[in-house]
C-alpha cells in the first residue's frame, strides 16, 4: 500500500472521481468549508452569527457580509452543518485515515513475518 500510483493509473482514477462527483452531486470543492467551520465555531460562541431570514434565498443571513452573501448560502451551511460540503471534508480525512490503518496493519504483518524467519 505504500507505493504511490503511477501518473497514468493515478490520473485516470482521480479523473474518474472528479467525474463521479459531478454525475452524483456537483464538482468537488473543499476550501469554502474552512469558512463554514470557522462560522460554526463562531456560531457556538455567539448564536447570532447565522440567523433565520425568510427573505434570503437560502433562508438564512448574517451580520457578516461574507457569510450573508449569495442569499445566505454560507449562513445556511453554518446553521445546518450536516450538509454535503461539510461531510465531504470529514470523509476525505477518513479516506486518508483508512490508508494509514491499512498501511500500519501491513507493516505489522510484515514485521511479524520477518520476525518468524529468525
Amino acid at each position: 500500500m505504500q507505493i504511490t500510483w503511477n501518473w497514468l493509473k493515478g490520473g485516470a482514477i482521480l479523473g474518474g472521481v472528479f467525474l463521479l462527483a459531478v454525475i452524483l452531486v456537483k464538482p468537488l470543492g473543499v476550501s469554502t468549508q474552512f469558512v463554514i467551520f470557522d462560522g460554526i465555531v463562531a456560531n457556538l460562541v455567539d448564536n447570532d452569527v447565522a440567523k433565520k431570514d425568510d427573505s434570503a434565498k437560502h433562508g438564512y443571513t448574517s451580520d457578516n457580509a461574507y457569510l450573508a452573501k449569495s442569499g445566505g448560502k454560507y449562513a445556511h451551511s453554518i446553521e445546518e452543518p450536516l450538509n454535503y460540503g461539510f461531510i465531504l471534508v470529514f470523509a476525505m480525512f477518513a479516506g486518508g485515515f483508512f490508508i494509514l490503518l491499512v498501511t500500519k496493519r501491513k507493516t505489522l504483518e510484515g514485521r511479524k513475518r520477518s520476525a518468524c524467519r529468525f
Partner: peptide, 28 residues
C-alpha cells in the same frame, strides 16, 4: 441521501488523493 453521497465521494477522493501522493507535501 446527500450525506451518503458526501461520504462515498469524500472517501473515494481522499483515498485517491493519498494514493497519487498528493497527501505528501514533498511531492507538491
Amino acid at each position: 441521501m446527500s450525506i451518503i453521497l458526501a461520504i462515498i465521494v469524500g472517501l473515494a477522493f481522499g483515498f485517491v488523493l493519498h494514493r497519487v501522493g498528493a497527501g505528501n507535501p514533498q511531492y507538491i
